[in-house]
Nucleic acid binder design. Structure first.
Length: 335
DNA sequence: TTTGTAACCAGGTGAGCGGT
DNA sequence: ACCGCTCACCTGGTTACAAA
């Protein structure tokens, strides 16, 4: 190794404090900054509200006990502009954002509000609030969410995609025909090595008012926005009043969640393994049918935190499983 | 723009599995 | 029985984005 000449080149320099501050600041994306500011604003407007009446700012407090106490109150007492409770995701977001803010604004304050060891009461309040909301069904399912769940269940039963295939499903893989939907698998996992032929599964015909997979899927597809450019089959759920599904693929978490629900509801052991894998698939599908209708209906229409009544108005539910049993064995042969 | 929420990401955790 | 490894899932936190 040659010695480096430290004297005669300009490759080294001592950055100024401003330069360092600038690069450190640039690490944080604009959206994060905005999100932080937003929650600080909400916090302050809660504090200034006549029913609360904290006239000083949270960051002016020196004791963590007091910060924790007031944060607990905030968490449980804050409401959206419309007066509703915030969703679970938002509350988590709120605590994280305010923690970020305190770290930036109180000198040498290096704590994390989400840390259950430093702030046990705050943690308990957050956790308790989230659980309470879950119990009360806050964040309940919408009609089109129920439809999506049903469609998902049909496709699980009739199309038997493997675990990972669910969120890669494309809208092109479904062809609507007179006989029913044809579900095409362009390439299967076990086709590795060059076997590229397309695999087609014809979904069984609907039994009116009893088993209507085709009608469900047809309705689901028709509810996609006409200008939708997303290729994925499953779309994100919209909260807007006029729109049902977003022009964006449904998150993997969502899909995995629905998948797990089916397994839980039907008592299928998925510990450590995806039920759609390998030889477990046939038995898993069989167990779904054996589990009986009520649970399946419950899952298909509602899911973990939704109110079934809402969806019931929308749609008559699958009532019979005998027909589908035959179809399930048909699928078994194909696979 | 602001508001509310979901997606994304990294790091942690623990069950399961093969090898010893 | 135990070790080390892998891998799916979970958690905490950050970032993106649709809707208003």
């Amino acid at each position: 190794m040659e010695n480096i000449n430290f004297n005669n080149d300009n490759s080294y320099f001592k950055p100024t404090a401003e330069e360092l501050a600038k690069v450190q600041q640039s690490r944080v994306p604009l959206n994060t900054t905005r999100c932080t500011e937003k929650w600080v604003n909400i916090l302050n407007s809660w504090r200034n509200h006549q029913n609360v009446g904290y006239t000083y700012t949270l960051e002016s407090l020196s004791s963590n006990e007091q910060i924790e106490k007031e944060m607990c109150e905030f968490l449980y007492g804050v409401r959206t502009k419309k007066g509703d409770k915030y969703s679970r995701a938002s509350l988590k977001n709120a605590v994280a954002s305010i923690s970020r803010h305190l770290k930036n604004s109180i000198l040498y304050w290096n704590y994390n509000l989400l840390d259950k060891n430093s702030f046990p009461k705050l943690y308990a309040t957050l956790d308790g609030t989230l659980k309470e909301m879950k119990r009360l069904g806050i964040g309940a399912a919408k009609l089109h969410e129920g439809l999506l769940r049903r469609v998902f269940l049909w496709i699980c039963l009739l199309g038997c995609p493997r675990g990972g295939e669910h969120y890669k499903l494309l809208i092109d893989q479904f062809e609507d025909t007179e006989k029913g939907f044809i579900f095409k698998k362009f390439q299967q996992k076990n086709d590795q090595g060059g076997n590229q032929h397309t695999f087609e599964i014809l979904f069984p015909s609907d039994i009116a008012d009893k088993v209507e997979p085709n009608a469900d899927i047809r309705k689901y597809i028709s509810m996609r926005h006409p200008n939708c450019t997303t290729k994925e089959f499953y779309l994100g759920i919209s909260n807007a009043s006029g729109q049902c599904y977003l022009n964006r693929a449904l998150g993997e978490k969502w899909i995995r969640g629905m998948f797990r629900e089916i397994c839980l509801v039907c008592d299928i052991d998925i510990s450590g393994r995806n039920i759609s894998n390998h030889s477990g698939r046939d038995t898993a599908i069989q167990s779904i049918f054996d589990a009986g209708n009520e649970e399946i209906e419950a899952m298909a229409i509602s899911g973990h935190n939704s109110s079934a009544d809402e969806v019931l108005e929308d749609k008559e539910l699958p009532k019979s499983n005998t027909i589908n049993k035959n179809e399930a064995s048909k699928d078994k042969e194909q696979i």
